[in-house]
Design a protein around this nucleic acid. Structure first.
Lengths: 137, 137
DNA sequence: ATTTTATGTCAGTCATGTTGACATTTTGCC
DNA sequence: GGCAAAATGTCAACATGACTGACATAAAAT
């Protein structure tokens, strides 16, 4: 079930991104940066659990093409605080829109109690759910 | 949540498979062939939604190394009816064991009603859930 | 002053997907 | 009986997104 749900959940954004020359990895970055504006590169690495070399490639493309903005941290100037540009935000909305529609449809069909149960189980499956709802620093 | 759950759900088997020189794609084949013994190549293609060239590579490795057996169909001799060998079954159990433990833990924590809700929502997210519980022909 | 941290970069590799083209065997239909 | 369609295979080239390993730089912390 997880395989099917995940496969179909990602298929629409994947198709949309392919047109832009982007892939699923770009979507993840856009999504999480959109959710947590001001996050640093290492925050992103912790969430995605990939290597910095892998992240660097997609992040560079997103920054070069003006989807993601970066600014040095105020207290710590080594950090790159990441955020979406207007262009990035617009893409984020286009991508999330499809997925949101899918989730809302599923939630509506299943009912409120089902949604509550769904969330509880999903949290239980995840190793450390606290990493999922990470604090903005 | 789907991203985190899927990532963690696959991480343990991935690690186990890496030792054998296999990957997640091999796991999928082993899983579905184990669930539906006697399925054909095109059944598998329909479920996985990948190209036959992609499937051919992993399937060949699994057959060559004696994890998957194949036999011509009785009525239709063009078909390859796939099944797990003893070796394949043993690997399948080792892989599924970890995932089952994870799911059982999550289910136990969340409670019976939550599980019911979880399943309803997951079905709603999937495009065509009927493809998920495919009939043995 | 030195170490640690946050980040970047180059280079090579691997797993898994893709497209396109063509071959073989078997089935099914006219 | 003959021929199209179906089930499957194979070769080749390519893209994406992950990986390891090694080294570099600037800022912070000790």
């Amino acid at each position: 079930m997880l395989f099917f749900a995940y496969r179909d959940f990602t298929s629409e954004p994947d198709a949309l991104l392919a047109g832009q020359g982007f892939g699923r990895a770009h979507h993840r970055v856009i999504y999480f940066v959109g959710r947590h504006p001001g996050m640093t590169v290492s925050d992103l690495l912790t969430i995605l659990k990939i290597t910095k070399q892998s992240l660097a490639r997609v992040l560079r493309e997103l920054v070069d093409q003006g989807f993601v903005a970066q600014a040095p941290g105020e207290r710590d100037k080594r950090q790159r605080r990441l955020s979406l540009t207007a262009k990035g935000l617009s893409l984020e909305r286009a991508l999330t829109e499809r997925q949101l529609a899918r989730i809302e449809r599923a939630f509506a069909q299943a009912g409120t109690d089902a949604v509550e149960g769904f969330k509880r189980v999903m949290m239980g499956i995840t190793d450390d759910p606290s990493l999922g709802r990470r604090n903005q620093p």
